[in-house]
């Protein structure tokens, strides 16, 4: 009972809210992991080819761009989901009001 009420108040049972929450939760780490992977690739290539500062710098830059690209794609998806949700809600509201009109 209590758990159900708690879940309702956190809107965890609402699927669109849950998916928006999880999308928002993923954005931060997506940015960081792009940078980390880019830097690691550059560093290991540098160790292998003995070109120290160059490849690390280049791949770190590419990693930062990849991180930004991840965030860009994520936020685009979040916005699209939001838009879809809004449309659904508005159409539901319109249906509700038309029901009321016919009843009156």
């Amino acid at each position: 009972m209590l758990l159900g009420k708690l879940f309702k108040s956190f809107k965890i049972t609402d699927k669109s809210y849950l998916s928006a929450l999880s999308h928002a939760g993923t954005i931060g780490l997506h940015m960081v992991s792009g940078i980390v992977v880019g830097t690691l690739i550059g560093y290991s290539l540098d160790k292998w080819l003995d070109l120290y500062p160059w490849l690390t710098g280049i791949f770190m830059f590419l990693g930062i761009v990849a991180g930004f690209k991840n965030v860009y794609v994520d936020s685009k998806r979040l916005l699209a989901a939001q838009k879809e949700e809004d449309e659904k809600r508005f159409s539901l509201q319109a249906e509700d009001s038309s029901d009321k009109n016919t009843r009156v």
């Binding site: 993923t26 780490l29 792009g34 980390v36 880019g38 690739i41 791949f59 990693g63 990849a66 991840n70």
Partner: peptide, 17 residues
């Protein structure tokens, strides 16, 4: 290279999160 890096970042972010 950017796409390859962003794809390789996926398992890392899944694991760490």
């Amino acid at each position: 290279p950017i796409e390859l890096i962003s794809h390789m970042a996926r398992p890392l972010s899944l694991t760490l999160r």
